[in-house]
Design a protein around this nucleic acid. Sequence first.
DNA 1: CATGATACATACTATAGGGTAAGTACTTGT
DNA 2: ACAAGTACTTACCCTATAGTATGTATCATG
Lengths: 120, 120
Amino acid sequence: MTAIKVSSTIQENKQYALEKCPVTFVMEKIGGYWKPIILWHLSEGNKRYSELKRAIPAVTEKVLIQHLKQLEADGLVIREAKPVVPPFVTYRLSSAGEGLLPVIEAMAAWAFKVKDGEYS
Amino acid sequence: MTAIKVSSTIQENKQYALEKCPVTFVMEKIGGYWKPIILWHLSEGNKRYSELKRAIPAVTEKVLIQHLKQLEADGLVIREAKPVVPPFVTYRLSSAGEGLLPVIEAMAAWAFKVKDGEYS
DNA sequence: CATGATACATACTATAGGGTAAGTACTTGT
DNA sequence: ACAAGTACTTACCCTATAGTATGTATCATG
């Protein structure tokens, strides 16, 4: 039943979903809990690590870098580190990251409609 | 450090994110692994439970109903059950669910751009 | 009379992700 | 000499979610 065959795992289903569903593909990239917020803040302009930290106080440092690393690995943000002695690292959106902004805005628009009770 | 205070939990951070970030709000609704796929299939028209099952063979039945229940509870899909003896249940998008289609399409559009290498 | 189809439910497991807490290396300020 | 700020890293825990496997009620059909 359920058409799951030999040695099926979560990873295999993930593969399936990634290939079959472009939306799942996007979810993989921005599905982290704080990623959309990070992207949102970066859409306002380049930010230092510490600026992001202060801008999103509820996220822990571990998760913040974790997400930043993933976003960097996925090519959505670009990290620039000046090799100075108190470290100076800035993050900014790549062109792919900027391409996501319309998506983010579409999501925000829907959320506001829902909260305004526009869909009774 | 990290500005997390007394009795902070995942749930509290969730609350924070939900209030502060409309995108996280959307993620809560369509963030389940198969939800976007389900919504996509429902965008093609009403579907019976068994039709969805066959349309998305890689998802298990448990997860399929689980997601459908959540989507129903979130007001994104509408469940209609005819009280006949072999059960006949159809699912369709609510107006709020339809309102998400532009979001889904924006995500899909971005995904295809990425895969086509449009952002070198 | 047993199988299949319908639309689920339920008990159990496994893993990924987020959270907590603490530490690192280097320098400037007091 | 010690704290504070920079940008992280690491070890550990906890929970939410997906997956596995099986069961349920009803009827039609062979």
